[in-house]
């Protein structure tokens, strides 16, 4: 759906030019929610603005749906932009227009007749859950509602791609979740390809299928969200994963065993689990062992639960061994730390 080859953007400056995006190569498939994460100044905004040519690339090619955006003339570019929706951190709504007229704006640009505009706007208002607020002005809306208007506006001309630049960064956590759910909903309902930029790992975790980690204008690492969570390679990525999961090494350094005279401490790794979420209760029912959860963190991603649990199992050695053997038959990985003797 989107192919990016050798993309580069240099901002000329007096003393030293700023290399905002450096030799970036990416491939985004149709219907995918692709996340780009990085710290402030990593070049994320520049990257996403290159995609619809709000910035002109210094070098490289961008193809969206088979068309080379980077080679287009002005007029062709305007047409293509109508098929690329974009939403912004600060919403960028026209304060002088009502919700309805804000959403109608891209339709006016596309030259849609008044009657059709009205019908389409009604559909969109329904889709983003803003019924009853049609005639409000942006200043009368909450942040979440403003972003809903932004999303409705971005979807007005049935785009194939939706670009989101820090779309939830100005919102509180609950509103962020609601907006993210709406994006997933749209992605599933309309089969829309979404490119989403953020500096928050939990946003990636909640809705993205694949992720690229950006650092100093380059992609440091990319892959399936789960893989990146499980096996972060680069230092930046590890730090982002810690944002969500906490620091692994610190957990391991805890002396979990000291308090237990008998039984075994085991570490259970949930890796994209969807089927074994009731594992603990299953084990304690089927085997004569008591399972105490000591600590851990499980988090939900688009591809299921992911995380680690430390449990302490009490019971006879044989029974514990059988229980562990059972766990090994599931897709949950288990490591037995040590005997607590």
């Amino acid at each position: 759906m989107i192919t990016i080859k050798g993309l580069k953007k240099v901002y000329p400056a007096k003393h030293q030019d700023v290399l905002a995006v450096d030799n970036l190569n990416l491939e985004v498939s149709k219907g995918e929610i692709f996340g780009v994460i990085g710290y402030s100044g990593a070049g994320k905004s520049t990257f996403i603005r290159l995609l619809n040519r709000l910035e002109d690339p210094t070098e490289g090619q961008i193809y969206i749906d088979g068309k080379e955006i980077s080679a287009m003339g002005k007029q062709q570019l305007r047409k293509s932009r109508q098929e690329i929706g974009m939403i912004f951190q600060h919403f960028n709504l026209l304060w002088s227009r009502t919700v309805r007229d804000n959403i109608a704006f891209p339709l006016e640009i596309a030259g849609i007749s008044k009657g059709k505009r009205r019908a389409r706007v009604d559909e969109l208002i329904e889709l983003v859950g803003l019924k009853g607020r049609e005639d409000a002005y942006p200043s009368q809306l909450s942040g979440g509602q403003k972003q809903r208007v932004g999303i409705a506006r971005a979807l007005a001309n049935n785009p194939k791609v939706l670009l989101c630049d820090e779309a939830t960064s100005a919102l509180d956590p609950d509103t962020t979740d609601a907006i993210l759910r709406l994006l997933v909903d749209i992605n599933e309902k309309l089969g829309l390809t979404i490119i989403l930029i953020t500096h928050e790992m939990h946003v990636i975790r909640k809705i993205c299928h694949r992720v690229a980690v950006m650092e100093s204008g380059r992609v440091a690492e990319q892959g399936d969200v789960l893989d990146v969570f499980l096996h972060p390679q680069q230092q930046v990525t590890k730090r982002f994963v810690e944002q969500v999961m906490g620091d692994k090494d610190q957990e391991e350094s805890l002396h979990l065993l000291e308090n237990y005279q008998n039984g075994k401490v085991a570490r259970l790794h949930f890796v994209g689990e969807t089927t074994n979420q009731a594992l603990i209760s299953q084990v304690s029912k089927q085997f004569d062992v008591a399972v105490n959860i000591l600590q851990g963190k499980i988090t939900q991603t688009q591809k299921g639960a992911y995380g680690t649990l430390f449990v302490h199992m009490e019971g006879s050695d044989e029974e514990i061994a059988r229980a562990i053997a059972f766990i090994k038959t599931t897709s949950v990985e288990v490591e037995v730390d040590a005997d607590a003797e």
Partner: peptide
């Protein structure tokens, strides 16, 4: 607001 002008550009406005 420059962002609003930018949003209009992103929609393909002349």
């Amino acid at each position: 607001d420059k962002g609003v002008v930018e949003a209009a550009k992103a929609m393909g406005a002349k």
